[in-house]
């Protein structure tokens, strides 16, 4: 670890390229904290958006207009408005309306900026997931469902054992895309001062005056994060592939 720090220190002294994060413990801690926050945001929003999306898709397929209409409105509104404005609307608009709570002798908002970022980003991505899941379910031919019915499957069992396993395979590529997009969108939490990677890096470059170097670090960081997510999703896609089943 020391050698790396020394190397970057020498690099700074000889070339003037100041990658302060790699030798300055304070900058490194800030950067690493930002990275952890980005990971926390990504993982929680991905999981939440998948759950909300699945529930939404289920409701959208229900025969009741009363259930379908709100889901449709939700999808249409969240898909066609800027996610940043959504975050502001939630954090400032709704956040200030909620009662404050007593915590450690101080009055603090009921939900923190991190929590609001997670809520609004999850809803944003979920609006897309609803559509993706729905189209996956609809891509399963009616006749396959009929065959299950003829074998005595109930509707629920047919969904669990036949429709969903097939639907998930159909929508994986689109889902893959949307989740990568969500990872990139977590940067918007910067705007409500969530200390994620972009926020941390900006603080570092304002103090250490190394915009160019930190920009390289920033782009590399997101490049790697997106790369890892894409790799994971592709592995999943491959694992789910059915032999003899061309798409």
């Amino acid at each position: 670890m020391h050698e790396i720090g020394d190397w970057f220190q020498r690099l700074y002294e000889t070339t003037g390229l100041n990658f302060s994060v790699f030798y300055d413990a304070y900058d490194w801690d800030r950067y690493f904290g930002g990275l952890k926050m980005t990971l926390l945001l990504s993982v929680t929003t991905i999981l939440l958006s998948l759950m909300i999306g699945a529930v939404g898709a289920l409701l959208q397929g229900s025969p009741s207009m009363l259930l379908r209409l709100p889901v449709n409105a939700f999808v249409v509104v969240f898909r066609n408005t800027p996610p940043l404005v959504q975050i502001f609307f939630f954090y400032f608009g709704l956040g200030t309306m909620l009662p404050a709570v007593e915590a450690a002798g101080m009055r603090v908002p009921l939900l923190s900026n991190v929590q609001w970022a997670i809520i609004s980003l999850s809803l944003f991505a979920a609006a897309f997931n609803v559509e993706i899941f729905r189209s996956g379910i609809e891509a399963v031919p009616r006749t396959t469902l009929e065959a299950a019915e003829a074998l005595g499957y109930t509707r629920l069992k047919a969904y669990v054992h036949i429709v969903l396993p097939l639907a998930i395979r159909v929508c994986l590529p689109a889902l893959n895309n949307n989740l990568v997009n969500l990872l990139k969108t977590t940067t918007l939490a910067y705007a409500i001062a969530v200390p994620e990677t972009l926020y941390a890096v900006k603080q570092i470059w304002s103090e250490s005056q190394n915009v160019f170097e930190m920009m390289v670090v920033l782009l590399a960081t997101y490049g790697i994060l997106v790369g890892v997510l894409v790799w994971l999703m592709h592995r999943w896609e491959r694992a789910m592939r059915i032999p003899g089943y061309a798409r």
């Binding site: 209409l69 409105a73 249409v76 509104v77 609809e138 891509a139 159909v170 089943y245």
Partner: peptide, 25 residues
Amino acid sequence: HRLAVLLPYRPMQARMSVRIGPLAA
């Protein structure tokens, strides 16, 4: 036969337009 098994993924925006008009939204 393989092709007949699963229809390809297609985005669903088209369907939405029928369900909920822009004005209503």
